[in-house]
Design a protein around this nucleic acid. Structure first.
Length: 568
RNA sequence: GGGCUCGUAGCUCAGUGGAUAGAGCGCCGGACUACGAAUCCGUAGGCCGCAGGUUCAAAUCCUGCCGGGCCCA
């Protein structure tokens, strides 16, 4: 982060001195190949026309000036069509060690948010049954985005919107009430589209037990009781599943409370007053065509029933009235047709641009390459809880967060589990544990990490030493990129790179037998790497263990047994 | 039929308009009398779906087509 900034600042000064502007499409980035140096700039190609010079000639001129005015560069070179490639002196990279040591767990913090308030709403599954694997992907993504935004200077609130007011909810109450009466011996036929899962029967039995007089109640009251009991019970289960997945929401917002508080009517009145809603055919309509939709949408049907869209508008109105600068909604990809409509509604609320919708593509659950049926009767791995128990929260989260959210994801249970020792999450965790193992061994031998300073840095000048420093120095910009693009996968890919550099270092440079002074310096460097690994894993909500307990053979045996039992 | 989205190595996937397009898995071949071999090193594997366009420069941006997924009629 500092390195890139330093290069950019000096380059800007050089350009200004020549009367050249900073081009819009200027890019400073680490080149693909190490031999091109630490950073590469493309300004000479972009400015050749303005400057009236050939790209390479301009680049040479700029390079000459950079060499004289920038003390931190070891080399400044011109390559290819006119790239300016710079290499920093080792002492510049060494300063990353002191930075990480000073910042500790806060390493990687970048204040790009400057205290702006952001709400992240995710999961928000209807409380009609347990969470499935697809919800897990949204949960991991939302939680990780929240962690990344907090790390980058945003004030974040995580919210779960409980759809407890609509048609689905009436069906839930009816379903439990139906089962309850059937269990009481009444001859009641099954309904057309009610929930048939076994958990409905369990709920019915529990309601009957805790409310013995329910059969004598007026039906409306009894159904409502069934409904409330069911929602509370299912929500408790959802919260438990999320907690086991290390996901926690700050606010659980009830749609019903929104309706009862009259917020939907308030929003209607507001839209009517501003001419953005109108009555027609006994229904109330939103003028979504004003905001790019292909037709206007119903808010209140002629039957008087409210649409989901109506309460969603009121809900978002309420979000902004609570003072959030920005709202991020994470939805399943099957809702993508709803995005532009919701964006239009937010624009109508006067908050254009303040809503970001992230669509999470489907997760197809596989088992040895074959699709696992999700919708049939209670299968082995229908639910998030089952999957988490089988493969572990760390492996599931890392896998979800290693891919862009807008690509469909294949989640093969046996691959994540049976090959768990080749799983990227273990690769990264092992790197962290390896460092701590060396620190323990070092302590036994009376070697502790050196104090940062020139004496220690003098022992850290191999290419592998400097590569680790470079990677550590890059961490804050990776976090900033992940925050800007709302894409945690940049973090997981970075961590894999850092872990690879660490493993390579480990095989090339023996730490503890290198002599007391060198060993202490290396422990200093590696302990900083461990700090960064832990900070990065924390952004993904993945643990950073100080030792790995299992050995691979034992893990394979466990897998074999469990897989055998599961298929038996 | 309209719209959104994705097509990159055998598989799963990265890739911010830049240089010879990368990684993991899998295949093949190497490396423990030292800090954990859960690791490392090497070989092989590509019309970046197809065709145009914009650009000094396109896997990346634009248009059309083909194919997969989804939403809406």
């Amino acid at each position: 982060m500092k390195a890139k900034q330093y290069f950019e600042d000096t380059l800007r000064r050089v350009l200004t001195a020549r009367g050249l502007p900073w081009p819009e499409k200027a890019l400073i980035e680490p080149p693909r190949e190490r031999k091109f140096g630490d950073f590469s700039a493309n300004v000479a190609m972009l400015l050749a026309g303005v400057a009236g010079m050939k790209p390479r000639d301009l680049a040479e001129a700029l390079a000459t000036e950079l060499r004289t005015c920038a003390s931190e560069f070891e080399r400044v070179e011109v390559a290819g069509p006119g790239f300016l490639n710079v290499t920093f002196a080792p002492r510049f990279w060494h300063s990353a060690i002191a930075d990480v040591l000073r910042e500790g767990a806060d390493t990687g913090c970048v204040n790009v948010g400057q205290g702006r308030t952001v709400q992240v709403e995710y999961v928000s599954a209807n409380p009609t049954g347990p969470l499935h694997i697809g919800h897990g992907r949204g949960a991991a993504l939302g939680d990780s985005i929240a962690r990344i935004l907090r790390k980058t200077g945003h004030t974040v609130s995580c919210e779960y919107y409980i759809n407890d007011a609509g048609r689905q909810m009436r069906i839930l109450g009816d379903s439990v009430w139906l089962r309850l009466r059937q269990q009481a011996g009444q001859d009641v036929p099954d309904l057309e589209d009610f929930y048939r899962g076994d958990y409905i029967k369990d709920l019915a039995a529990e309601v009957a037990k805790s409310h013995p007089g329910i059969l004598e109640m007026p039906e409306v009251q009894a159904v409502d009781l069934c409904f409330q009991y069911a929602v509370n019970d299912i929500l408790a289960g959802i919260k438990r599943d999320l907690a086991d997945f290390r996901v926690g929401h700050d606010v659980w917002f009830s749609e019903k409370s929104l309706v009862l508080a009259g917020k939907v009517q308030e929003t209607f009145a507001d839209l009517l007053a501003r001419g953005l809603a109108y009555e027609a055919d006994d229904a109330l309509w939103f003028k979504s065509t004003q905001f790019g939709d292909d037709k206007d949408r119903v808010l209140r049907k002629s039957s008087g029933e409210l649409t989901y869209f109506a309460s969603d508008i009121a809900y978002h109105d309420d979000k902004y009235k609570r003072g959030f600068d920005r709202v991020i909604d994470i939805w399943g990809a099957d809702h993508h047709g709803y995005v532009s409509r919701m964006q239009g509604a937010v624009e109508a609320l006067g908050k254009k641009g303040a809503l970001t919708v992230i669509l999470v593509q489907l997760v197809s659950l596989l088992r040895n390459g074959e699709q696992v049926a999700m919708s049939t009767r209670a299968g082995q791995f229908e639910t998030l809880a089952d999957v988490v128990e089988y493969v572990g929260a760390d492996a599931a989260r890392f896998l979800f967060l290693s891919r862009k959210s807008d690509s469909p994801l294949e989640f093969d249970l046996e691959l994540v589990r049976k090959k768990s020792m080749d799983n990227p999450v273990f690769y990264v965790q092992y790197a962290h544990a390896r460092v701590h193992s060396m620190l323990r061994k070092g302590a036994e031998a009376g070697i502790s990490p050196a104090e940062p300073g020139d004496a220690a840095y003098a022992c850290l000048n191999t290419p592998e030493d400097l590569e680790l420093c470079r990677l550590m120095e890059r961490f804050p910009s990776v976090v900033a990129l992940a925050a800007e693009s709302l894409s945690p996968h940049h973090v997981s890919h970075y961590l894999s790179d850092l872990a690879a550099a660490l493993h390579k270092y480990y095989t090339q440079h023996h730490v503890l037998s290198a002599g007391a002074e060198v060993a202490a310096a290396r422990l200093l460097l590696l302990s900083c790497v461990a700090t960064v690994l832990a900070a990065g894993l924390d952004l993904l909500g993945v643990s950073a263990p100080e030792r790995m307990d299992q050995n691979p053979e034992a893990a394979d045996e466990i897998t074999g047994d469990t897989a055998g039992n599961a298929t038996a």
